[in-house]
Amino acid sequence: MKQYLSTLAVLVAVSASLTGCAGSGTSSGISGKALADCKAAASDAVDALRAVPELYIPAAAAKGAVAPGKSVWVVNLLSNDLTNNITTGIKAAASALGMEFHELNGNGTAQSANQALSTALGAGADAIVTSGIDASIASNPLQKAKSAGVAVITILADDVDAPIDPLVYADLTLSADYVGKAYADYALHRTGCDLELGNVSLPASIPLSNEVGKVTEGEVTRLCSACAVHTIEMDVANLATGLPTQVQSMMKQHPGINYLAVGFDSAVPFAGPRAQRINKDVTLISANGLAPNLQMIKNGGVQDADMSFPPNDYIGWLAVHSVLAALSGTPGENQRIPMRLIDKTNIENSALTSLYPTYDGFQAAFEKAWGLS
């Protein structure tokens, strides 16, 4: 009995730390049944988000025999930890298939991205994989790729449920509804439904980011009518110099902000510390599952949760699966990248391979699907 009571006390303490420390613990706007319903709904949603996803290998036919001698070009709008990790996966998968691999960088601007795509087409690319680039900023080279029969696979261009853009073969991406609600539900959970959220978003011109922001605000309002959301759009080409100032201005304009949702992990070092200069108790959720961010969660830093992808090189192999499917003549379809909520309750250590045990050896699973083993 003594051990039971001791364990119960620990669980109560952990629960209190997870649901109350980012806010005041009592809602100044909703109370009674509305407050209880909000807390229960947010808690249930967070529990489900923490579950380990099953390994996902698309069923679409992708024949490894069509790959040898073909070339795949990678064009990233931005070079950061996520895109670098994904590119590493693409390179490894291409090597396993006997494909040529080339990489170009869009340097954060539409002009550079268009030039990089044109370079890949001029060099005779058989397939192109892009990240952060869609037809809204690169319609001319993508139209040329379509006319030349070059398959273009985009990563994180639009919502997974959006129709496939006619200029691309498929988009490997996430569900805006899933991520937007996850951001809102976790923020409500952490603040005990006493939330004033600072939403640090990618530009609204990026369709996926725009939709995630709308869903986040809608979910907050649905569960907590008195809670508030304030949004700023980061300048992705000038994160290091611009974002700290943007966050500081938002925090000073809205001093009640007690939690942040940040668009992607690489932006956290520029957003989180500046926010805590204004309010030392502010913490945040972000997305991608980069190692430094997961370590921050483990160490109790400004980031306390992450909507994490699997090991990021898995996304690269998933992209090459779509390349093979295109070269095999299989109709294109968007692919949803699996995600898992990581926080203090389930992090244990910051290695994605341990946080995604079902993804151990995913490379062999792809090779089997491609007929290589």
Rank of each mutant, 00 (worst) to 15 (best):
E100D: 14
C193Q: 10
A42K: 11
K252W: 09
K252V: 14
G20Y: 10
S43F: 09
Q246F: 08
N346L: 02
A42R: 11
V14Q: 08
P207A: 13
K298V: 11
I278M: 09
A291F: 10
P203M: 03
L284H: 10
S31W: 04
S373I: 12
G218Q: 06
M251D: 02
S6Y: 07
A67P: 05
P357A: 09
A125F: 06
A237E: 13
T83A: 02
V268S: 11
K70R: 15
L11S: 10
V46L: 02
L208T: 01
M234S: 13
M339A: 08
E233V: 01
Y183A: 06
C227N: 11
K344P: 00
G149F: 04
D161Q: 05
P203V: 02
V179W: 04
K39D: 04
L174Q: 14
G192E: 02
M339Y: 03
A34W: 07
G218D: 10
S147C: 02
A51C: 08
E219D: 14
S322V: 01
G32A: 13
Q248D: 14
G332A: 09
P58Q: 02
A9T: 11
G263R: 01
L167V: 09
I90L: 13
K146F: 05
A135G: 04
G32E: 11
L77S: 09
I86L: 07
A67V: 00
Q248E: 13
I164N: 07
Q253E: 13
L318R: 02
D304K: 07
S201I: 05
G180D: 01
D126R: 10
S308N: 07
C227I: 04
N293W: 02
A123V: 05
E196I: 10
G192D: 01
I232V: 14
G272E: 08
A34P: 00
D37A: 14
N299D: 15
D306F: 02
N199G: 12
T173F: 12
I153Y: 07
A145F: 03
G242P: 00
A59W: 03
A319M: 04
